[in-house]
Design a binder for these strands. Structure first.
Lengths: 132, 132
DNA sequence: ACTGGTTTTGACAATCATTATCAATAAGCG
DNA sequence: CGCTTATTGATAATGATTGTCAAAACCAGT
């Protein structure tokens, strides 16, 4: 039987309150910062469950972390993320939206969700890197 | 200066000889199996270099391993991944390529790498899911 | 071919995210 | 309320990847 615990609720809420993707570790930190004494292992378990049940999307960041996101079909958008300082800019992506659907259909895929995120260096960090 | 060593050659050849994606660990094992005393760290370095120079493609498996593949077409492309069975189809993504670069530039970002992967259910799994 | 300056290698330690362990806790049912 | 059992959480374990650094290999110049 599946039980409802405040921990699972907390993870779900924290994920909902997060813009874009977040790592399990980061989510755990966030929860701790707000006073929740939730355990790290529990965050991993809760995120895994959410991903399995389809309530959350997961993807792997370029450096191998698993990132999670609350699955909201409404208000879909994408992100431009600074690899160095973490600055995140939201971007609309209608073009990509259409493209993803087209490509998926062409290959017989259904229920296409897509992960379109751009990692780069923001203006600031570009300058810093150049000065190295 | 970049030097040519038999180790780097060996990695490149082993990668060329491999169908599809392979993990660094697996490639190391393969090399050892053929008698090459190459070190694990060296395989990682060589693969990283190949990926950086565009001679190899890399992606993350669902369980967090980095997988590499000899890059047949010069150029970058993306993947269509079945959420259920893991089937991966390669897709060209010139449109997205251009879009990503444009968006990044518009926001002052440089060195844009992007994560553009489409998850869905492949034909097979769609049928299976329907029958559930 | 020999030598010098540098890069590369490779064995192993270190790191980091994630998973397993397992006793203690708490959810839900009656 | 009490019982059964899923869940929690501190910590150990795992496993891939990266860092370290002395020794070996590469390449250019002689």
């Amino acid at each position: 039987m599946k039980r409802n615990t405040w921990q699972r609720e907390a993870v779900r809420e924290a994920l909902d309150a997060t813009e874009g993707f977040i790592s399990a570790q980061a989510l755990h930190s966030t929860l701790h910062a707000t006073g929740s004494p939730i355990g790290l292992a529990t965050v991993y378990r809760a995120l895994g469950d959410l991903a399995t049940s389809g309530e959350a999307d997961s993807l792997q960041s370029p450096d191998g972390e698993s990132l999670y996101r609350a699955c909201t079909t409404t208000g879909h958008h994408h992100h431009l993320i600074c690899r160095n300082c973490g600055l995140t800019v939201e971007i609309a992506a209608d073009e990509v939206e259409a493209w993803a659907k087209r490509v998926a259909a062409r290959h017989g895929f259904t229920q296409a969700a897509h992960v379109v995120d751009v990692f780069g260096l923001c203006e600031n960090c570009t300058r810093l890197a150049a000065g190295e």
